[in-house]
Amino acid sequence: MTGNEAMAEAAIRAGCRAYFGYPITPQNEILEYMAGHIPAVGGAFIQAESEIAAINMCYGASAAGVRTMTSSSSPGISLKMEGISYLAGADLPCVIINVARGGPGLGNIAPAQGDYFQATKGGGHGDYRMIVLGPATIAEAIELVMLAFDLADKYRVPVMVLSDGMLGQMMEPIMLPEPVDPTLLPAKPWALSGARGRDPNVVTSYFIDPGDLNRINTQRQSRYHQIEENEIRYRETETSDATIIIVAYGAVARIARTVVVMARSQGIKLGLVQPITLWPFPYAPLRALSSQVNTILTVEMSAGQMVEDVRLAVADRAKTPFYGELGGLVPTPKDILREVKRNVS
């Protein structure tokens, strides 16, 4: 099972019963897996006419109360941004997988992390936030897809799993979790189910009166604050005695795990912090570590996007160099070790 197929299966096991997508490399295996498997559990599948249509089908299916997912890769995610803003504005849960590739524009189909800003800082219009989860292994991808559905329902927000082409295409042994029975999930009294014996339910992001929109948006922001308080996730490796730390997420984080072993064998006290929630970002743990170490090196497959959050956390308490590969090049363990050594000496 490839990473893409594993994420699709995890979604079904999380109780996802509606999937809408559009072909784009390197995420086609999710669409194809869903086409073959979600109807078997009574779920809805449509290969939509566009990513825009797909995300809006999600908007409808989610409003009808069903666990809903779409997936795409970077250029297609750009098209989904309209729908993501509407999902956020109408307080609808939805899971979006981005198997990211090189950009901007058509870019290429190689693994990349150039969509961090788009995912974590907006991308769509308006005052909204989206929970963004960055898996580094297929096992984490499965776990985070399951978590994504729970968080989406709990906070009524869109949640993105920000993967990349490497994780999507590769294989490694996995354990699949027990399936969730969607009929046993908490009820959604706000869903569109027909106004029988109750007042009509309305799903909308439209509030013409500025006072109303201000009130709704303020309530939503307080939900975002709860998410920041409760849901920050990250993984530390060998940080307790570290003098230098790498911060990396996704595919780069797992490559960096190998670099930690390599560096320590050469006497370099290297540690690793892998943010798992990219929003909310683990500012506090990085701030805490920043007074212990000399250097916090951010490594990304981009020109430097997450590094801005790292620098916000660290301020001037430690050096915050950046190393990135662009265009879909994946840094190898040796590449990263070279950057570590450059910053140690």
């Binding site: 825009i52 409808g60 409003a63 106004a195 009509p200």
Partner: peptide, 11 residues
């Protein structure tokens, strides 16, 4: 007096 949903322009 029925359930309703507002869609993005054209969708």
């Amino acid at each position: 007096r029925c359930d309703g949903i507002q869609a993005a322009h054209g969708r």
